[in-house]
Design a protein around this nucleic acid. Structure first.
Lengths: 109, 109
DNA sequence: TGCAGCCATGTCATATATGACATATACTAA
DNA sequence: TTAGTATATGTCATATATGACATGGCTGCA
């Protein structure tokens, strides 16, 4: 794989190449991806509960429809920052966010 | 792009809504800043509880001492992403993070 | 007096995230 | 069919975050 292609892939996808295998995400990376997925899903639920389209939410966030779609899909190019901003813009409180993060996390130790 | 405009003004020495107690920040911005402050504070507590210096944590994060200092200070140039990564690197679980976000700040609001 | 470890703060080149745009798909209604 | 609405996906210029570095303050210790 040449450098240019790898860079393009890395821009869209999870890490490619030397640092981590596709199935070899570290515990920490996994935890962060989990959080992102949960926040993305919660964003969609909350947006729909508000009766807003992606376009409408995008306007509220001063963003664009495509980015909202990527947020909800937990796209690799979307930061946790943006997801949190989106949720807060939909009225989510820190408590709501805390609930989102701990939902379904009852893994028996 | 209000935010970009604000940044540009601030870069030229204008203080645009720097503190929330002067109605410069919206409710949502305030909530995000609150979260950042809490995460920064929690990062420091957790780092010290681990007996690590900022340099040691920086190495673990593949970052630098100065950035860790800024994380703990909830510096404007630090993202929630980085703070969350720092906490996770110190062993914080989503549940821990949820607790951090909902911890009472002592303000009866 | 140093010196060493720790932390704060500022700057800067560059890596990354973002908004905007184009376009594709699916569904609905006239 | 055609038009309209909502969403998905890819690309790109650029705004932003980041690591690296410099520097200064502070504390304790020889």
């Amino acid at each position: 794989m040449n450098k240019a292609k790898q860079k393009r892939l890395e821009a869209r996808g999870w890490r490619v190449g030397t640092t981590s295998d596709f199935l070899g995400l570290s515990e920490e990376e996994t935890a962060l991806v989990e959080m992102k997925l949960r926040l993305g899903h919660a964003l969609r639920e909350r947006r729909e509960a508000c009766g807003l389209s992606q376009v409408a939410l995008a306007k509220r966030l001063q963003s664009s429809q495509s980015r909202v779609a990527k947020m909800e899909a937990a796209d690799q190019t979307v930061s946790l920052d943006l997801l949190l901003r989106g949720l807060v813009a939909l009225g989510a409180t820190p408590r709501d966010i805390a609930r989102i993060l701990t939902r379904n996390s009852g893994v028996a130790a």
